[in-house]
């Protein structure tokens, strides 16, 4: 039986991870980039909880997951703050147009 609850969560992790990485590859809007990062984080949180369950250390998995939520909220905040500044300075959030440093 492939659709055990654990497997469904595993598919969720893999799916979210795939969506996130694919999103990072194609997204051209900075706000969306930060959002895609959040999708990746969700995959990770799910994975940590799942790992806790699989190894029988449920508490460990959940406490790490909670910590990740806190830490990555800060990253998201900083990212969005930077995006706001970028919008102010460049007048755009389009990735190719804010790519001036190259070579």
């Amino acid at each position: 039986m492939i659709f055990t609850p654990l497997n469904i969560i595993l598919f969720g992790v893999v799916g979210l991870l795939g969506v996130g990485l694919y999103g990072l590859l194609i997204t051209r809007n900075l706000i969306k980039v930060v959002m895609v990062l959040q999708i990746l984080i969700k995959a990770v949180i799910l994975a940590l909880v799942l790992a806790g369950k699989l190894s029988g250390h449920l508490g460990l998995g959940q406490s790490t997951a909670a910590t990740v939520i806190v830490a990555d909220t800060i990253v998201a905040v900083v990212g969005l703050a930077l995006a706001v500044q970028v919008r102010r300075r460049f007048g755009t959030l389009d990735v190719p147009r804010i790519s001036t440093l190259r070579g």
Binding site: L21, L24, T27, R28, V95, P96, S99, L101, R102, G103
Partner: peptide, 13 residues
Amino acid sequence: QTGELNWNILGIV
């Protein structure tokens, strides 16, 4: 060294 975020991510992946 394209300087574009998406290409940079491609490097990582």
